[in-house]
Design a protein around this nucleic acid. Structure first.
Lengths: 134, 134
DNA sequence: CAGTATCCAGTCTGATACTG
DNA sequence: CAGTATCAGACTGGATACTG
């Protein structure tokens, strides 16, 4: 997610882009390919509309700052709708838009894959680390 | 991807994890949810076995450093196999393992989603930015 | 409650130079 | 060719303090 500021001074520029990967799509991927984004999207798709505090509670380990930042980006990209209820104390609720739901569905496969292969990956890492640190 | 060093001092710890999301799965997601990881995986799944330089060429915008780092992680996690051909000049080739292929397939849906919705997202952003900067 | 503002250590990045 | 080593700067996420 730092790629946003790379000044086109990398290898690819030497041969003016393979045009294989559309920069605009890459940009979107850069947004989606973020741990907190994936987690928030997942929580929201599993629990429906949630208020800020509940969302924080369910998104294991997120800080208030990151949660705010993440939901703002999601809102900007049209994936989440933020509803402010004018009451005291404040009540703000978040829910996925149709677009957000469709992304959550696409990401679902990744979650399933991850859950299904944790052990295999852990084993591979142990193996790799033993080789190196022989 | 910075989550690896968070010292359990965030909100979730206050109510000792909802246990909803498995920390080990979160860790895997953290690895996968990375721009370069997704791009390299995608390129490798589309082009089959590739040597370092070709991979760099196809993964638009990646620096040598990040490519090396990314393929090392993928190798460690058992998603990619690195073959060193003992010739001069050196020739190193990378290809997906079965596990890597299965992840690439899961990610494919995300790429399709991204390509399919670039315009909608761009529009949403313009809209959002106009509201703010009224 | 739901943020915003600020500070800061730690991390990531790209550039450059060098090796087998 | 395929790296490794190093460096400075940009950026990150978390903690803390404060507001409507």
């Amino acid at each position: 997610m730092y790629g946003t500021y790379h000044k086109e001074t990398t290898m690819a520029v030497l041969r003016n882009y393979p045009a294989d990967l559309d920069p605009r799509v890459i940009d979107v991927i850069g947004r989606v390919a973020d741990k907190w984004t994936m987690i928030v999207l997942d929580v929201l798709s599993e629990h429906g509309e949630l208020r800020f505090s509940k969302l924080a509670q369910l998104a294991s380990g997120i800080s208030q700052k990151m949660l705010t930042q993440t939901v703002r980006q999601l809102e900007r990209d049209g994936l989440v709708i933020r509803t402010i209820h004018p009451v005291i104390p404040p009540k703000v609720e978040y829910r996925l838009t149709d677009l957000g739901v469709s992304l959550a569905e696409a990401l679902c496969g990744v979650w399933v894959w991850a859950a299904h292969n944790v052990d295999r990956i852990a084993a591979s890492r142990r193996n790799y680390d033993n080789r190196s640190g022989d």
